[in-house]
Write a protein that binds this DNA or RNA. Structure first.
Lengths: 220, 220
DNA sequence: AATGCTTAAATTGTCGACAAAGTTTGTTTT
DNA sequence: AAAACAAACTTTGTCGACAATTTAAGCATT
């Protein structure tokens, strides 16, 4: 799809990004119906570009479309979250393995210094790392795999769903510092070119992450 | 997307399936440009449905689209094949793990008898299993994972690319009987509810499969 | 002859209108 | 009053035309 060129070119691009943002952040509620005519007036574009945007959202699994009926925003559920993290575990585990194989020494160095700079900020404001830092770390691993499929499925697809769960369930989580340590260990494994360990640690990291969010979800 | 409802409803569905078929089977050559107007006359539909079909193909990674420029059929390359199988290894490994966890006893029984019936046909015509049997086996594992993301990424996406490589590189491979044995072992692990082993065996199976195709590809 | 600019052709992006399918409402029938 | 049918309405699917952008061609210039 796009993956790299994240700057919108066409009108459909812009509308797609806006719609995705509004869905992820809950401006358009989960489970609600998406009327093409309604959206076309709201976002001030023709129905054609709305249709294209909705189609793209459907491939991201952010909306579900039925022929001759319409599209609905996906509903958030415990099962959906579990399935999401099952796939993340598989894909990001492999991404970590491939990152250990293919990332350049320079890229690894950048990532290490990135973690260092994050570490300083973690000391002060404890909830900084969660948003920016965590996202940044995972992005680098995934792109470091140099695998187009991995990159597009995760970055263009699953990550937006993950963020949707995080945002709409109000995650600020106390898992900040422990997650940080896990990131350190993963980077070390990659720096040592230990593919096996990198994959194992990443899978475990995501499992922990899942358990953390799952706890919150079942607690309400 | 669709995943389940594989019977086309709308005109865009039909065109999407036709186009996909023609691309996978090489009727439309790999790397060639897709002109919207040209295709709209060829398939006797309006440009709008061609556009929608092309957009869907883009999310399957069967074509690549650039804004204001157009779409091209993806090119087959050794790197592309390797990346494809890296993702398959991760996803289908996880699928096997989840199949061992979630498949019902009945589903497992069906799969075992399916392998039995295939075994008879393998004895006679040695190249039967490759097409129908192999596909059937992997489909059952993937759907057995009960994971929507896994199912859609693999069945709606990657498998068509895999088939494109197979068809266009003329694979009939002598790996028939060995692959069959590997399938047996995987099913056994699933029947024993041994998640760990099921994943390991599936990953190994796909690695072998990759090496087999890779050999052919580098040999020309 | 090669390079750069200008203009023409072709292709993609966007739009509004019409056709088809689904949904709702109101009426009739049991 | 409940169920079944029919008509009106709403929503999606499809189409042809126009606008914007890219590509190609032609011309002028060095």
């Amino acid at each position: 799809m796009l993956s790299n060129s994240e700057q919108p070119i066409t009108n459909a691009d812009r509308t797609f990004f806006k719609l995705r943002k509004d869905i992820v952040e809950g401006v358009i509620p989960a489970g609600s119906k998406l009327s093409e005519t309604e959206l076309s007036t709201k976002y001030e574009v023709s129905r054609a570009v709305i249709r294209e945007a909705i189609n793209r959202l459907a491939t991201c699994h952010l909306v579900e479309r039925k022929a001759n009926v319409g599209a609905r925003v996906v509903a958030l559920s415990p099962e959906g979250l579990i399935q999401l993290y099952q796939v993340r575990e598989a894909l990001e585990g492999m991404a970590a393995r491939l990152a250990a194989r293919y990332m350049s020494d320079e890229e690894i160095g950048d990532m290490q210094s990135l973690l260092d700079s994050h570490f300083d900020k973690v000391k002060d404001s404890h909830n900084y790392y969660q948003e920016a830092g965590d996202v940044d770390f995972h992005y680098r691993i995934v792109t470091g795999s140099k695998n187009e499929h991995l990159i597009s499925v995760l970055i263009d697809g699953l990550y937006h769903l993950v963020r949707m769960y995080r945002v709409q369930l109000g995650m600020a989580g106390p898992r900040v510092s422990t997650a940080f340590d896990e990131h350190r260990h993963i980077v070390n494994a990659i720096a040592n070119r230990d593919e096996e360990l990198a994959e194992i640690l990443m899978r475990r990291h995501i499992l922990y992450s899942k358990n953390n969010i799952e706890k919150k979800l079942n607690h309400d």
